[in-house]
Structures are given as C-alpha cells and as structure tokens.
Design a binder for these strands. Structure first.
Lengths: 298, 298
DNA sequence: CGCGTTTACGCCTCACGTAAACATC
DNA sequence: GATGTTTACGTGAGGCGTAAACGCG
C-alpha cells in the first residue's frame, strides 16, 4: 500500500469516472487502473465492482474511503507543517461565471499567484450548471456560481452578491420611463437561459406581471452590453457596468421602483474535499470577490 | 514522499542506530540511508544531522517525527479496518527473563500464534538490563522484565508477580531450620547479579541482617535448581518449582517466618510505540502470565 | 582501528504510456 | 458503435544489496 495508490483510489472513488480521476492525477487511465488493482491486491479486497458499465465502489471500498481521505489529509498536514508552499503547488482548476471573469477574476489570479507562487491556476469560464457538473464530476476543484447548488454532494458558501440595473440606450427612451413599460415595445436582451441571472429575471417578471414578448439572448455579458448600447433592446447589466456606461451617456439607467433582486454567489466545492488548497482559495476569494467592480474593459 | 520513507525515518529516529532500524525493516543499512536521504530531498529539509559520530535529529526532524508516527498509525488503522490479520503480520521480537521462558512463555507462544497466525514470534531470553537496552534501542518491540524500568523512554505496565521459596537439598538440613541459619554454613546459590531477583535477595539479606559469605551464581534457573538438588548450597526457587521438587523429596522448603518479597514483573515498551500489535500482545500476556506455573520440564 | 553512515555500481523490479482488446449500454 | 475499463508490451526510472569509501571517536 502506498500513498499514490490511496490517492488514486480516493480520486477514482470520488470522481465521475476513472478518466476524470486520471486527468486530475496527470496520469493515463491505464496507469490509474493498475494502481487501483495493485492497491486491491495489497489489501486483499476488491474495492470497485466492474460488473456494470462504470466502476462502482464495493462495500469494502466504501469502508476504505474515509480512511484513505484521512491518510491523504494527514499527509497534507505533514507537508504543511514543514515546507509552507508544500501542498499548495501543482494545478488548481476552478470554474467561474462570465460576470466573475469580467470583474474580479483578474484580481483573484493576481492575489492567488502571489500567495501560491508554485501553483498553476486554471480558471474555466462557463455557465453555472456546467460548472456544477464539473465540480461534481471532479474535473474542477471548485466553482463560483450564482445561487446554491442543488447537488447534495456539493457544499455552498456564500461569498457575495451582484446587483443589476435595468438599462436602455439613451436615445431609445426619455428619462423617467421604467423597464416594465419599455418591455412592451422593445425586446428583452439578456443572457441565455441557464445562466445565474435567469432566476432573478423570472422573479422580477412575475413580480411585475410583465411578459417579455420578444426575447433576445446571448451567451456573454460583453455581447449583451454591446447590444444594449447599440439600441437593440432593453435589458440589465451589472451595476458597475451600467453606471460606467451611463456616465458616458451611452446608456440610461432605468431606476424605477422595481429593482432586480440581488444575485447571490456561492463558492461550491465537494462536501468531502480534503485539500487544504481549496479552503485557502475560498479565503482569498471571499476577500477578493466584488461583483460591483467595473471590468477592466471599460 | 512515501509511506516506506516515513517508516524508515520513524524507525531511524527512534532506534539507537540506522543499523538497528535497518534490521527491523529487513533492509540493508545502505538502502535505509538512501530512503531517508530521498525523504529529505522530497521534503526539502535535512532531518538528520550527520556531523557527529552518530546521526541526530535536526529540529525539522523533531517536528516531523510526530506527524510521521501519526501517518503510520493511520495506515495501521486503515489496514485493521479491512483485513483483520493485516498489521498483525510480520515479525514481533520481544524479550523475556528466563523465569518467564521456563513458565508461561510456551503458553504465550501458543496463544499468540493462535491469535495472529501470520505473525512470526521471536522471543529473546536474557536478563532484564539487557532486555531493557534492547527495547530502548529499538531491537525489541517489548520485554517482560522484573521491576519498573529506569528509562524514561519506556512505559511499564504491571502484569503479575512471582513468588520464591528458600530451598535446600533434603539431606543437608533437618526440618525446621531456616534459610538464614543455613547460610552460615552453606554457600548461597543464586542467579548472577543483574537478574531481576537480585533486588529482592538484597532486600531479604538486609532485613535478616545476614551476609552471604560464600556465594555461587549462575546464569540460569535450571542450573541453579540442579545445583540446589545436588546439595551445592542453599538458595531459592520459583514457588512452583520448589513445591514440585519438594513433593518428590529432592528439596526441602525452608518456610521460615521470613519469606522473600514477591517480585513484580512489568511489560515494557517504548512510550511512543505506535504499533497496535504491541498493545494486543500486552493484552494476551496480561491474560496468560502466571509465574507460579510449573515448568514443563518437571 | 572500530563504529556508524554514505557513495558507487550492477541488478532487477516496478510504474509509466501507447495501443489493442474487452465489456457494457 | 460509443463509452469505460482492462490487458499487453516496450521503456526508463527507482529501489535493492554488495562492497568500498568516508568521518568521527
């Protein structure tokens, strides 16, 4: 029994497939498979049931899992007690929404690479549901997404909220007009369904008893902002963007009485995540996250 | 960093020398040395100071030691949680006094090999001081010796007491005569100084205000018993032996008012001993130990 | 010079990746 | 046939023991 075998077992047991686990170990699938077979031989127990389409933990494997996690955690603490940077090297893959990518992600990368010079940071930008699946499958160490996770295997920690303001091109509407009224004549320009803002938008529409008859969705905030500036329709933008564009006179903020609810963002990772690094990254993110920040693009 | 490296480090740090540690790992000294060098390289810390005649732990080594012990213990528990016999295989070296060897050691070996079929038991018979040094140096996993240890690194657990009776050859003395009186004319036949009985003998002599003018010592109870039967002098034997030989008429028990104090035996192991096996062996020994048992030789 | 540790070297096992085979859906 | 895991095999690094060297008492 070796630590490498235990690590391979732990990841294979917690990731969606051997392929994902192998990727996270920088190992070929075949080598991962052999490591696990060798662990099984050294323990004299079958840990995975390969009968079905995908390998499933046997009862012995289930019994072993917490012990293996404990060993790996002990090993990490051992390393942490000596070399400070130990355990905080290697790669860290994580997911963020586009809003994050365009606001505080650069600052996060600066801070994190300052704190962990040995660490290779690999952010993936995608919509929340994709990121959640990535964390669940073990492809990502964590993700910052809107709202709490519906997956019981993931733990959510609130890290802040983003506020949005309804806007429209200055030339399309006189001052004082509300978003609800404009939606009667202008199309709604927003993100694709599945993005984090979908929920607060639906909530707002229901509350206002307004239906968005014409709807135009795109998969990026940058494109949405561009369309709104060009006068394609009415929509909402992150507060910082809206204020920056309004100040330049390109957009008018529709600050009627009915504002969009703030969108809460959470840090999501596996509930059984043993890596110290993930906890440290959460600390930094909690400190750095600021969804009202203006993008460096402006 | 591997478990083998940590194990090598742990043993090298707790044993008297690399040679002893290597012996316990069934490894050559050179391989042990390399394992430790490799651990140092992987941790980026020097763990042993090789400046002096013998390797000594550096501060970093001292910091690492408890972590390494914890890892090894976790590994053991992991194995114990799956395969029952796991962790209880391999070799177990321990020391016992000759009295133990001639009374309950056979029963211990029977019981222990029944409880741990995979285990190779290696008892070493010697006098207490030698055994204590062996445990302290790491050559022995534990020892059963008379009295508590004077070494602070060893933990002592009482497991029973042995009683001794003064005897003399039947033909040498009429009934009713005491040992103190006989010592005036007959030599004292006893074990070498350093044996566990030395203390209770000295105590008895002081209490009786008797000096053993002629003294004849040997390094084995069997030889002492033989000499006493042959009428070489007066001496004492373990209670069971004395009664067995008296019943056959070969010896007379000198049951005067002044009996020897009972000799307390303790189970001694390293205070930081992490092996489950040692605790289990102590349980069995506590159950099995019986110093009044008659040797199978009779 | 003895003792304890390290270095040098030849040997062999072990762990890796590529590629093919196998099994399940 | 697509996906997921294992087997076959050639290669290279790593761990082993023997033997010689080093360094301190």
């Amino acid at each position: 029994m070796t630590l490498k075998q235990l690590e391979a077992f732990y990841l294979a047991a917690t990731c969606a497939s051997f392929a994902v686990a192998a990727q996270r170990l920088h190992l070929s699938i075949s080598s991962l498979s052999k490591r696990i077979v060798e662990l099984e031989q050294s323990l004299g127990e079958t840990l995975f049931d390969r009968a079905g389409h995908r390998a499933a933990l046997t009862p012995a494997g289930v019994r072993l899992l917490p012990h293996a996690a404990g060993m790996l955690e002990s090993a990490q603490k051992l390393l942490a007690s000596l070399g400070k940077e130990a355990g905080l090297s290697g790669r860290c893959r994580f997911g963020v929404g586009e809003l994050t990518a365009l606001t505080w992600l650069p600052r996060l990368l600066t801070q994190a690479s300052l704190a962990f010079p040995q660490l290779t940071l690999e952010p993936y930008v995608d919509i929340g549901t994709v990121l959640e699946r990535g964390v669940g499958d073990g492809e990502l160490d964590f993700a910052v997404v809107a709202g709490r996770s519906s997956r019981s295997a993931l733990a959510s920690h609130s890290i802040g909220e983003a506020r949005f303001l309804w806007v429209v091109a200055t030339r399309l509407a006189p001052p004082g007009m509300g978003a609800a009224a404009l939606l009667a004549t202008l199309p709604l320009v927003t993100l694709h369904i599945g993005a984090g803002t979908t929920r607060i938008l639906d909530q707002w529409l229901a509350q206002q008893e307004v239906a968005a008859e014409r709807r135009l969705s795109c998969n990026g905030w940058g494109a949405v902002a561009g369309m709104l500036v060009d006068g394609v329709g009415v929509g909402f933008l992150p507060e910082g963007w809206a204020r920056a564009l309004a100040q330049r006179g390109q957009l008018r903020i529709l600050d009627g009485q009915a504002a969009l609810a703030p969108l809460h963002y959470t840090f999501q990772s596996r509930r059984d995540e043993p890596r110290l690094l993930v906890a440290k990254m959460r600390e930094i993110i909690t400190r750095v996250a600021d969804f009202s920040a203006t993008s460096a693009l402006f």
